[in-house]
């Protein structure tokens, strides 16, 4: 179409040699040949930065992946040895001893976590109770509630890991193969999933959680409103447009450009 051809020719690169176009440029010797465009310069700088950083990040991820791969391979080699039929009988006893030791330590750590949690949580008793109320008997005293709640945390912590490790350990006993290991892992996952869903259902629909959810949301809205009011105050004091106003103006300009482009397309 004629209009398109015209616009294309208007934007075509000048055929004159570069020396001539330099002569047509502003007189100041230090002036650049193109007008100063900080936005374009900024975009170019960011593009370069992103490209370079992207390469670095990719390289880093690749190396990190390789290292993880090596570490993982050495770990699976040891698991492979443990699950191999020929060596299993001999090593099962050793594995069992290690797991029992691990469980004993996990219990110890669990107990310490419980104590630490109880000490740390005591100043925020009210908040803590709101979180844990759904799980506690209604008639319990404050001390009982605190004890039960912390025990609950410990149970969740050690319960999950002990359960998983017990199943893993059971599958390593003589006469059970790799398929059995996979099967118990899948069963364990399903059991865990079901329990988790039940726990979520119980917790998310409990009055304690719903109450806390509403209050937290309300407080967060107040905070956001305060931030916005601050922005507006700065805007009023300085006479500069607020971020919201700038966004709105930018959007209006963008919208208008799109409308014009659409109308032009339809006309064409």
């Amino acid at each position: 179409m004629p209009r398109t051809k015209k616009s294309k020719s208007a934007t075509r690169a000048p055929t004159a040699p570069p020396t001539e176009s330099r002569e047509e440029a502003p007189r100041a010797p230090s002036a650049p040949s193109t007008p100063h465009a900080p936005l374009e310069e900024g975009i170019e700088l960011w593009t370069r930065f992103a490209r370079e950083t992207g390469e670095t990040v990719t390289e880093f991820l690749r190396r990190f992946g390789e290292e993880q791969q090596k570490s993982y391979e050495s770990w699976v080699a040891s698991v492979n040895d443990a699950t191999r039929t020929t060596s299993r009988d001999r090593e099962t006893q050793e594995v069992q001893t290690r797991l029992e030791e691990w469980n004993r330590r996990a219990e110890e750590i669990g107990a310490r976590v419980r104590d630490a949690f109880q000490t740390a949580a005591s100043p925020q008793k009210e908040l803590f109770e709101t979180w844990t109320r759904p799980f506690l008997p209604k008639e319990a005293t404050a001390d009982q509630k605190a004890r039960e709640a912390t025990e609950l945390v410990q149970k969740l912590w050690t319960g999950l890991f002990t359960d998983v490790s017990r199943r893993f350990y059971d599958s390593l006993r003589s006469g059970k193969g790799v398929e059995e290991l996979v099967k118990v892992q899948e069963e364990s996952l399903k059991e865990f999933t079901d329990s988790f869903q039940k726990l979520t259902q119980l917790y998310y629909t409990s009055p304690g959680f719903v109450n806390m959810f509403g209050r937290t949301l309300d407080a967060s809205l107040d905070l956001q409103k305060a931030v916005r009011d601050g922005d507006d105050t700065v805007s009023r004091l300085t006479g500069l447009p607020s971020r919201r106003e700038i966004t709105e103006l930018n959007q209006a300009v963008k919208d208008l450009s799109q409308k014009v482009a659409r109308l032009n397309n339809e006309r064409a």
């Binding site: 998310y204 629909t205 719903v210 109450n211 959810f213 509403g214 209050r215 949301l217 309300d218 809205l221 956001q224 409103k225 916005r228």
Partner: peptide
């Protein structure tokens, strides 16, 4: 859960909209 949470005390839809 959405139906339950919508009745949470302090859940003010108009306040969310204004904010």
């Amino acid at each position: 859960y959405l139906n339950v949470w919508a009745h949470a005390p302090g859940f003010d839809a108009w306040k969310i909209a204004r904010t």
